[in-house]
Amino acid sequence: MPTIEVKQISKRFGQQIAVDHASFTVDPGEIFALLGPNGAGKTTAIRIILDIFKADSGTVSVLGGPMTEEKKNRLGYLPEERGLYQDVQMDRSLVYLATLKGLSAADASRKVDEMLKRFELYDHRKKKIKELSKGMQQKAQLIVTLIHDPELIIIDEPFSALDPVNTQMVKDLLREEREKGKCIVMCTHQMHQVEELADRLVLINEGKVVLYGGLQEIRRSYSGQEVHVHALTDLPVELPGAVRVEKDNSGYRIHLEPSATPQAFLQTLVERGVQLDKFEIAMPTLDEIFIQVVTTEGNLQ
């Protein structure tokens, strides 16, 4: 049973269509990326899933059915608009938000202390939120998202305004949560950030789903016309099947003719006596795939 099942949801604000008949599912124990450029409708889709907004049409099933008050305690959400009570002490603010997720005051207090120690914020617990650095505030918000050990974690723009150290910390944390069997949805326009994390993805543009599936399958399906070659000898001048050869740091990046296949090109190299150290089909980045999809292929749905 999928953790989230979205069927044909649409949402309009006035004349603006934010989400247009979008469908996808998210399975337990995976990191799922909800991708798209700014204004694509990602946050609106997330808000519909979380029952903050009502869809004009379509249905959403979360944790096996419609959203309920009980289910709100089983999900952790870090919105794009980060915020905490600026004039309240950090530990009080965290305990309050944890109690709203169903924890008793005593449990919330104990878990807040544990998490503050783990995130190296314990010594700052009596400070008001506004007195903390931006990085510390980000960590505090992550604590709010995770403190009640949610089954479903939804993070909107997880790496927004994070420095490289904190970005890595968040990535490690998300991997750790996935290993525990949690379902994680990342919603971002920074597609390169999720390439090393996501298992599957949906790409939204102008409210519509334009790409959906496993990350590696998608990259493979959009690869094939470029190869990376590391050769111990020089490449021949004439290379049938190659359109352009570029030298890069450690070898060659070779663009193939549309009719050529990597397998045939490999055979050509071997036949020409090229001593290969490495032959690799170049995988396009998600950014490249997105550009390719929206400019050449149009929408899938």
Partner: peptide
């Protein structure tokens, strides 16, 4: 208005009605 300005409203709305 304080909760709106502190941008905690969205967290609150995913925690209660």
């Amino acid at each position: 208005t304080n909760e709106k300005q502190n941008r905690v409203m969205e967290i609150l709305l995913t925690s209660m009605t």
